[in-house]
Write a protein that binds this DNA or RNA. Structure first.
Lengths: 101, 101
DNA sequence: ATCTCTTATCGTAAAGATACGATTGATTTT
DNA sequence: AAAATCAATCGTATCTTTACGATAAGAGAT
């Protein structure tokens, strides 16, 4: 992407909100989060069974959700248990709430 | 993007939510919407003055917001007045609300 | 030590997103 | 009719995203 020379300065929460929105900007990631909400937690393999996607693709989506802070993984060898990160989830929730009035 | 052969079937609201999230997935578009909320309405030119971006770039962001249904334009020659599309705004609002419990 | 199971990461290809300048199109003013 | 104004669209370049298969990495079991 050809970037403008000057870096744009956005208000405090604008970038945070955009970052969360970006994490939610794919139906598979929405579905993963819905699944985690209903199950409270689950393993990567469970998701690979649910979606007709390659294991590597699911793993990549999980990585993005993790980078956005919306989920966290815990090693339960040999599996990894993923859960919602409640703290950041609540932050995202209030950011969206405030945004929509 | 190398697409999978079978089209994934998501639940009713999953794609709609992802579509709205995608529209919000850029700080400039968040800022535009915030501006429209505070001003109730504004012209393209106003936004070009606010952001250090080319006129064509701002226009492109407006187009995406319009395609997502979050805003609508009205010709007030020779300008175009953009406003929030309240109906769809409320739909987006409730989708996010439900999603975050 | 080797094998198995599970998941992350690497390499890669195709499509999409983001930015710009230049041009076009529509309307209003001169 | 010509000029000016405003915003959309076109053409283009670059970066990012999304997908896959293949490989690596970690822990537990044999």
């Amino acid at each position: 992407m050809k970037r403008t020379l000057e870096t744009i300065e956005y208000k405090e929460n604008t970038e945070a909100l955009a970052k969360f929105a970006k994490a939610l900007a794919h139906p598979t990631r929405i579905a993963i989060l819905k699944h985690l909400e209903s199950q409270s937690c689950c393993f990567t393999g469970d998701l690979v069974d649910v979606f007709p996607l390659a294991q590597s693709t699911v793993s990549q989506h999980l990585k993005e959700l993790k980078n956005a802070g919306l989920i966290q993984g815990e090693l339960k060898s040999p599996k990894i248990k993923y859960c919602i990160n409640q703290e950041n989830w609540n932050i995202a929730k209030s950011l969206f709430q405030n945004f929509f009035d």
